[in-house]
Amino acid sequence: MLDRYPATLPLFDIGWSAKPKSNWLVSTPERGPSKRRLLTTAQTSTYTGRCVFTQSELETFMEFWDDFLQCGVKSFLYPDYITGKDDWIEVRFAEQYSYTQSSDGRSYQMTIVLEVMP
């Protein structure tokens, strides 16, 4: 049973982008156009999103990262931005998160990159 992303945390509220990962196998002959076929049955995508956390939200996120995701290695459920936020998809962190503190020191802009599991 996978953990869900904490409901108290904001989602990608200041923008996100998605990029599918290539699952093509391309072979290039000496002459003529290349041949292309599918390597796997499922195509995965990467979501990159940004959101703003308060201090307490940042602490909630850190707890989720450390205790439930084991420093980000485990997968979890996240709302699906493509089909609607009521659907949940299995994702995991594609890379380490990063954040910057605002100039007034009261909030943090977080960048999260998620890999959608096949």
Binding site: P33, R37, L38, T41
Partner: peptide, 10 residues
């Protein structure tokens, strides 16, 4: 033999 093939050989 297809130039572009959506079948996955596995």
């Amino acid at each position: 033999y297809d130039q572009n093939c959506s079948k996955v050989f596995c």
